[in-house]
């Protein structure tokens, strides 16, 4: 296996094998992952990262296939990260999204990577964000992240993507119900796929009605589009809207959002670093078991232990 700096250089040069290896390194949380991210970080921020979420059967992968084709027609390069769930029982996963895009797998301007959640919650994997950065640093113009699409709380995508497309298909049951639960707030564009189905127009109207109730003071009014992923109908219009949203984000008043995102990322990174350094230390000292026992015996609560450990580490009240 090549050295991490070689991989980083490879990524920046757009070498496909290096990109693949870099993502694996991040996914596996290898000791060198941090070094890798640090090396590529200055070269990120050029790609437009699109998140695509929606319930199972709404046609996410098929739509992405058509979106890629449209971008390719425009001469853009595309990276895709398709996330599927890890089984909580076996730790294994079946990754089958790319089958819909498989014809594009030999296009050198396209890079598709399947990713298992590895029990991370929120519809993506822990490594998704940094994997998207790898594709960004490797020079992809557009990076599309397909979420698991299983639940209603897939809001983690907001931490990864700049433009979030929420997909529905008529006839899947309580689709509108799904919008109410959180996703409403994060959606930048709504798409009703399988537009050839009978109740597509009704779904569009339902969403629009709900938007009127919810989005009064927002500067960006999320549009509601119709597509037919099988034929590609409506996809050029979707790309136009995505592009509009990108331009909107570039305007100054939306800096706030980028700032919030940076802050969230920093907070999360600190949490993780601090937590893992303390836990590792306890393990090294063989004290982890001791503290766990205290909790089990109800002698000390977890928060008090945490405070004590922080005091010990930083030598002052936090």
């Amino acid at each position: 296996m090549p050295k991490i700096q070689e991989i980083a250089r490879g990524v920046l040069a757009g070498d496909r094998r290096s990109i693949a290896r870099a993502i694996t390194t991040i996914e596996n949380n290898s000791p060198k992952a941090q070094e890798l991210i640090a090396s590529i970080f200055p070269h990120t921020g050029n790609a437009h990262i699109i998140g695509l979420t929606g319930p199972p059967g709404s046609g996410k992968s098929t739509l992405i296939d058509k979106i890629i084709r449209e971008y390719r027609r425009k001469g853009k390069t595309v990276g895709v990260i398709a996330v599927d769930p890890t089984s909580p029982f076996t730790g294994g996963a079946f990754l089958g999204d790319r089958i819909r895009m498989q014809e594009l797998s030999t296009d050198q301007g396209v890079f598709i990577r399947s990713m298992a959640t590895r029990n991370y919650l929120g519809g993506i994997a822990k490594a998704t964000k940094n994997a998207a950065k790898v594709l960004d640093a490797a020079g992809k113009d557009v990076v599309i992240v397909e979420t698991v699409g299983a639940g209603q709380s897939e809001v983690e995508i907001i931490k990864v993507a700049q433009t979030i497309v929420v997909l529905f298909a008529p006839g899947l049951g309580d689709e509108i119900q799904a919008i109410k639960a959180g996703i409403m707030e994060i959606a930048d564009i709504f798409v009703v796929n399988k537009a050839d189905r009978a109740n597509a127009d009704k779904a569009v109207m339902d969403i629009q009605a709900m938007l009127q109730l919810n989005n009064k003071e927002k500067k960006w009014k999320p549009p509601v589009l119709k597509t037919a992923a099988l034929t590609g109908e409506g996809v050029p219009q979707l790309i136009e809207r995505i592009e509009e949203h990108r331009l909107f984000l570039e305007k100054k008043f939306e800096r706030k959002r980028s700032r919030e995102k940076a802050e969230a990322e920093l907070v999360e990174a600190i949490k993780e670093k601090v937590a893992s350094s303390i836990i590792e230390e306890l393990k090294r000292e063989g004290k982890l078991e001791e503290f766990l026992q205290k909790i089990l015996e109800k002698k000390m609560d977890p928060a008090s232990i945490a405070e004590k450990l922080l005091n010990r580490k930083f030598g002052k009240q936090v």
Partner: peptide
């Protein structure tokens, strides 16, 4: 293999040698 804890990518039928190798590469 999935039930044994592995991550399995299945690409469906009718795959050309080029598609198989490219997929193996991208998926590492």
């Amino acid at each position: 293999l999935r039930d044994a804890g592995m991550e399995v990518i299945y690409t469906g039928l009718k795959q050309t040698p080029e598609q198989i190798v490219e997929t193996a590469l991208q998926e590492d």
